[in-house]
Simulated assay, not measured.
Amino acid sequence: MTTSLPPRPPAVPLSAAPERTKTRLLELLKRHGTLTAQDIALKLEVSIPATRRHLSDLCDGGLIESRTERPSGRGRPQHVYALTENGEGVFPKTYSALCMDILRHIEALHGEGSIIKVFEARNAELAERLHQELPAHLPLEVRLELLTRRLSEIGFDAVIESDGHHLYIIQRNCPSLMVAQKYKSLCHAELQLYTLVLGQAVHREKTIACGQGVCRYRIG
């Protein structure tokens, strides 16, 4: 009588293991804050050269950064790694849900008009900051480039496009989608902000909050 062997499990693609290791590496930095390459290699149970390759890839991708720190504030400086803002963005956040709760309570306590006042106050603060970064003496194209760069840094994935007649701000992501879907005044406040900062007429043609693929703003 012969005994059949259990089927061999399917092979894991060679590229899967490195990606899984990178994910574990990011999770370690999220949990511990900063770690040396040696600490990471020990915790991941991989060689230091392999760890350094993963660290190099993640640094190139903008997910982690290296810096020099003194252990416990004293001793010899050591090279450590930490998550960047983009690296933090890999992990789930509940900011939108928290924002929704806060706005709902403000609305319940002070009425619907209070939400508009909140967005207007936020607009005024952002406009003051952006006016300093985008002075009016700069050409419009330069100010648009700086503005879209700033928008991308806070999660809008913004680019400039032209159809030969007009310039457009295209936002390919809405970092506050849940809030924008509930409170349409957020999109209106965004439109007012761009008009104020650019000193130009700005027309909204598409919005992600209304189910369209992008937010599209025509300048002029």
Rank of each mutant, 00 (worst) to 15 (best):
Met1Phe: 13
Thr3Gly: 07
Arg8Asn: 03
Pro13Cys: 08
Ala17Lys: 05
Glu19Gly: 02
Arg20Ser: 09
Thr21Glu: 14
Thr23Ala: 14
Leu28Thr: 12
Thr36Met: 04
Thr36Glu: 04
Gln38Thr: 15
Asp39Thr: 10
Ile40Ser: 01
Ala41Arg: 11
Val46Leu: 03
Ile48Met: 04
Ile48Lys: 12
Ile48Asn: 04
Ala50Gly: 06
Arg52Pro: 02
Arg53Ser: 11
Gly61Met: 11
Gly61Arg: 12
Thr68Tyr: 13
Arg76Phe: 00
Pro77Asp: 00
Pro77Met: 03
Gln78Leu: 08
Val80Ala: 00
Tyr81His: 15
Leu83Met: 02
Leu83Phe: 03
Asn86Met: 08
Glu88Cys: 13
Gly89Cys: 08
Ser96Met: 14
Met100Val: 14
Met100Pro: 08
Leu103Asn: 13
Arg104Cys: 01
His110Gly: 00
Glu112His: 10
Ser114Trp: 01
Ser114Tyr: 00
Ile115Asn: 02
Ile116Ser: 12
Lys117His: 07
Val118Ile: 12
Ala121Val: 14
Glu125Leu: 15
Leu126Ala: 09
Arg129Tyr: 06
Arg129Lys: 14
Leu130Cys: 09
Gln132Glu: 12
Leu134Glu: 04
Glu141Ala: 15
Arg143Ala: 05
Arg143Val: 06
Leu144Ser: 07
Leu146Val: 06
Thr148Asp: 04
Arg150Gly: 07
Ser152Thr: 15
Ser152Cys: 08
Phe156Cys: 06
Phe156Leu: 06
Ile160Tyr: 05
Ile160Cys: 07
Ser162Arg: 12
Ser162Leu: 07
Gly164His: 15
His165Arg: 13
Gln171Phe: 00
Asn173Pro: 00
Cys174Tyr: 04
Leu177Thr: 04
Met178Leu: 06
Met178Ala: 10
Met178Gln: 05
Val179Pro: 05
Ala180Asn: 10
Gln181Lys: 15
Lys182Gly: 02
Lys182Arg: 15
Tyr183Leu: 01
Cys187Pro: 04
Leu191Ile: 12
Gln192Asp: 14
Leu193Gln: 08
Thr195Glu: 14
Gly199Arg: 11
Gly199Asn: 09
Lys206Ser: 10
Thr207Cys: 06
Cys210Tyr: 03
Gln212Trp: 04
Gln212Ile: 01
Cys215Glu: 08
Arg216His: 07
Arg216Gln: 13
Ile219Ala: 07
Ile219His: 10
Gly220Gln: 09
